[in-house]
Design a protein around this nucleic acid. Structure first.
Lengths: 147, 147
DNA sequence: GTATATGCAAAGGTTTTGCACAGCC
DNA sequence: GGCTGTGCAAAACCTTTGCATATAC
């Protein structure tokens, strides 16, 4: 996938500029997360990376994730299942999570902006709506629950 | 505190009706959580209960919290620090948490309702805005960050 | 060559679970 | 007396950390 490869190169460039070294492990981890749509947990990422490169240790994955977050490449969000990482370019994804059936959906950028604007009116608080999911009932479950 | 005692009795009544037994440990745990304003973590709750009743085990606290949540007395929310429990009557507390200084604030009921209404327009999703905090920058930190 | 990154192992923290015993009803 | 709840200990997770070794630059 050309797009993904290009992204990987971009990230490698960012890391290089920070004086960081590009090890095969880092390449594999970066490649895997750039290939990922949406979010992924450290544990799941570790498993995937190990499919390609069996020796990679979980601690290396954690250290790399922290690094990439510091470098502004990744961010993490808290979903019901725990912490999950995603590319910052994919931010804007405000996560809706159904507490009954587990269905996941996202708000549109416009919807997210409208929400942010409302919250900002509360004492100038600037929300990052991507950091925590929004839990609730999807329309289907709502119907079943309320009858 | 008369109000708190009354609440404790209410909860005990609810548990009794479910055929559950009232042990001194459960009384202590219920009393402590009814006395709590806002939210408290299982760990903090355990410590507090142990101040009064040294023998109480953490696993008993976890089991009791799960029970009280099932009974509809408590609910838990995910804050930056992890899971925290609160009384359901205290719901409506939409938590704003500053990711920079850790300051905490709540939206008013009206603000929360306005937000919910907006989100509901997205495919009929009924949000529970109390379940996850909303992360972001408080006005002070925002000023310092943006200059 | 040197500083950095990795693997390994251990530790830390939170939450869950199995089991024997205690105690509520 | 019988069934439920508790304490204890262990285990299950997830994540972090210290240290010796390997390796990118």
């Amino acid at each position: 996938m050309a797009t993904t490869d290009a992204l990987v190169e971009d990230v490698i460039e960012i890391l290089r500029r920070r004086g960081l070294r590009m090890t095969p492990q880092r390449r594999a981890i970066v490649a895997e997360i750039m290939r990922t749509q949406g979010h992924i947990s450290p544990t799941a990422l570790t498993r995937k990376v190990q499919d390609t490169m069996p020796g990679v240790n979980a601690s290396t994955v954690y250290r790399t994730l922290a690094l990439l977050e510091e470098a502004g490449v990744l961010a993490h969000a808290h979903l019901e299942s725990g912490a999950e990482y995603h590319r910052v370019e994919e931010a804007g994804h405000v996560h809706l999570s159904c507490s009954r059936c587990g269905a996941e959906d996202d708000l549109s950028l416009e919807e997210a902006a409208a929400l942010s604007q409302l919250i900002e009116q509360h004492r100038g608080f600037l929300p990052d709506l991507t950091h925590f999911a929004i839990s609730g009932l999807c329309a289907d479950c709502r119907r079943e629950a309320e009858g």
